[in-house]
Computed example of a mutant assay.
Amino acid sequence: MTYITVSEFLTRAGDHVPRDANGDPDTTRIEAAIEDAAGVIRAYLPELLADDGTPIAPPARLEGVLRSISLDLALFSIFDATTGGEDVLAKRHAASMRMLSELGGGMDAYQSDAVEAAIVEGSATWIRGEEPEV
C-alpha cells in the first residue's frame, strides 16, 4: 500500500518528474520512490500496520497529509540520488520528516486544528506550529 499513486505524483510533481531516455516519465523510478516513501511513513507511524505487519489504510483525516508527505519524500529520493537534491526539495523533505516525527507520537494524539498547511510549489508541506523554510 502506498499513499500516493503514480498518476497523482505526475500531476503534483510539476517540473520535477524524472524522465527516461526517451523523455517519458520514468515510472519505474517513480514507483520505487513511492514505495520507499510508504516504507518511511510506516516506520514513523506503526499504527498504519496491522498486527501481522500488513499495511492498513490511514484514517481519512490523514490521507491528504500522507499524500503530500509521500510526494515530498519520493521527489527527494529521486533527485537526491541523481543531482544531490534540489534546495526546495530538500526543505520539503525536511518539513515532511518533521511532520512524521510529530505524528509518530501517535495518530490519536494528532490534532488537525493544531497543524497548519503551507502550500509550497503546488504541494502541501505540513508542519505543526511553524512556517516552512522556502
Rank of each mutant, 00 (worst) to 15 (best):
Met1Val: 12
Met1His: 14
Thr2Leu: 06
Thr5Cys: 03
Val6Phe: 09
Val6Asp: 11
Ser7Ala: 15
Glu8Trp: 06
Glu8Gln: 14
Glu8Arg: 10
Leu10Val: 15
Leu10Pro: 05
Leu10Arg: 14
Leu10Asp: 11
Thr11His: 14
Arg12Asn: 10
Gly14Gln: 07
Gly14Arg: 10
Asp15Lys: 07
Asp15His: 03
Asp15Ala: 12
Pro18Arg: 15
Ala21Ser: 14
Asn22Lys: 14
Thr27Asn: 05
Thr28Tyr: 08
Arg29Ala: 12
Arg29Cys: 00
Arg29Asn: 06
Ile30Trp: 01
Glu31Met: 11
Glu31Cys: 10
Ala32Trp: 02
Ala32His: 04
Ile34Met: 02
Ile34Thr: 04
Ile34His: 01
Glu35Cys: 08
Glu35Val: 14
Glu35Ile: 13
Glu35Ser: 04
Asp36Val: 05
Asp36Leu: 09
Asp36Trp: 03
Ala37Tyr: 02
Ala38Thr: 06
Ala38Arg: 02
Val40Asn: 01
Val40Met: 09
Ile41Cys: 06
Arg42Tyr: 10
Ala43Arg: 02
Tyr44Trp: 07
Tyr44Ala: 09
Leu45Arg: 04
Leu45Cys: 14
Glu47Ala: 09
Glu47His: 02
Leu48Thr: 08
Leu48Tyr: 05
Leu49Ser: 06
Ala50Val: 08
Ala50Ile: 00
Asp51Lys: 07
Asp51Gln: 13
Asp52Tyr: 09
Asp52Trp: 04
Gly53Cys: 13
Thr54Ala: 12
Ala57Met: 13
Ala57Glu: 13
Pro59Gln: 08
Pro59Arg: 10
Ala60Leu: 03
Arg61Pro: 00
Arg61Thr: 15
Leu62Arg: 02
Glu63Trp: 03
Glu63Cys: 07
Gly64Thr: 05
Leu66Ser: 01
Arg67Asp: 11
Ser68Lys: 05
Ser68Phe: 01
Ile69Leu: 15
Ser70His: 01
Ser70Leu: 04
Leu71Arg: 06
Leu73Cys: 04
Leu75His: 00
Phe76Asn: 09
Phe76Pro: 00
Ser77Val: 03
Ile78Asn: 00
Phe79Cys: 02
Asp80Met: 09
Asp80Cys: 07
Ala81Lys: 06
Ala81Cys: 01
Thr82Ile: 07
Gly85Tyr: 05
Gly85Asn: 07
Glu86Met: 06
Glu86His: 09
Asp87Leu: 15
Val88Lys: 06
Val88Gly: 02
Leu89Arg: 06
Lys91Asp: 11
His93Val: 05
Ala94Thr: 11
Ala94Tyr: 00
Ala95Trp: 00
Ser96Met: 08
Ser96Gly: 14
Met97His: 06
Arg98Trp: 04
Arg98Lys: 15
Met99Glu: 05
Met99Pro: 00
Met99Tyr: 02
Leu100Thr: 05
Leu100Ile: 13
Ser101Glu: 15
Glu102Val: 09
Leu103Thr: 00
Leu103Pro: 09
Leu103Cys: 08
Leu103Lys: 05
Gly106Met: 07
Met107Ser: 02
Met107Trp: 01
Met107Leu: 15
Asp108Ala: 08
Asp108Lys: 07
Tyr110Asp: 04
Gln111Glu: 09
Ala114Pro: 02
Ala114Met: 13
Val115Ala: 00
Glu116Phe: 08
Glu116Leu: 08
Val120Tyr: 08
Glu121Ser: 10
Glu121Lys: 11
Gly122Met: 05
Ser123Leu: 00
Ala124Cys: 04
Thr125Ala: 13
Thr125Gly: 05
Trp126Cys: 10
Trp126Gln: 08
Ile127Val: 10
Ile127Arg: 10
Arg128Thr: 12
Gly129Pro: 07
Gly129Trp: 03
Glu133His: 03
Glu133Leu: 12
Val134Met: 11
